[in-house]
Structures are given as structure tokens and as C-alpha cells.
Amino acid sequence: MQFRFTESPIDVGSARRELQTLSAGGYVSFEGWVRDLNDGQEVTRLEYEAFQELAVKEGDRIVTDAMRRFPIKHALCIHRVGSLGLGDMAVWVGVSSAHRGEAFDACRFIIDEVKHRVPIWKKEHYRNGDSGWVNCERCAAAPQHSHALHTHHEHQPHDHHTPEHLATTNPK
């Protein structure tokens, strides 16, 4: 299973061991973290829920597709569900390959597709007491936006299916 959910903190050490093989020269990972600000609102915590029966099938299809598109060795994506606090890791993607270029490309492909296609929902709770389902409650008033996750590799949104949305994203 190349895509799975967990209700516990993601164990990166264990996950990366699943990618190790002597034919791989390295691995690339992406971690999505819960950020304290989204769309101008101060976020205090998030709740994730998923339609897991379909989500694991769609997630597996994405990783299988990545294995076909890029000459990589192994790939895995793990997503949290339940209640998460600021700084918690919401999603982890790891890809091992002989050379680094295809590992970066495949990792980017997987996280972009997961955000775009897999039936997972996120409810934000705000410091002012309000809460809202991301992309659902304000979608009539504002375009969908890239949201609460940052990577330590890059401080920019990673939803590049819809570049017009970048303009609405708040820098941290």
C-alpha cells in the first residue's frame, strides 16, 4: 500500500526505511505542516477527515502513476486524520531513486495530485472562535486558495494546478 492514513503522528524514520534499497542513491521527502495563518485568519488547530475507502484507492493510483512517469525506486505517502495542532505534520511524501532529479519531480507530482484529487477535508479553527471547511464555505466568495502547509524546502504554495490562486495566498 503506497498511500495510507494514520491517526497517530507520522513516524518519518519508519516510513523512510520503507523506501531504502541499495539501488537508490538518495531520497526526497515533503512534509506538510499546520501553519498558524491562512487567508488572513489566525488558525489554532485543524481537523482532517477522509473518505478512506476511496481515498486510499485514489492515493495508490497517484503513486502508481508517479512510478510509471518517473524512473524512481519507491514512493510512499502518509496522511494524518483527526485533530492536529500548529506545527504538526499533516502529510508526508517520500521518494527514493537512483538520481535526485526524478525523486524531486516525483515527490512534487505526488503532493500536488494528492491535494487536488484525494477525498480529504480540512476544518480550520480560528483564534476568533470561528471555524470553516477549507475550499467549501468561502468558495462562493473567494477563489480556492493554497493553504496551511509549508515545507522546509520551499516557502511558497505548492498547488500549481491553479496558478491563478497564488495571488490569494497569504505569505507567512
Partner: peptide, 10 residues
Amino acid sequence: VVFIPPVAGG
């Protein structure tokens, strides 16, 4: 049957 609202994973 499941209706799927706009997704927001990641």
C-alpha cells in the same frame, strides 16, 4: 452513495 465536497488534503 457519497457526495464529495471540494477536497483540501495536504
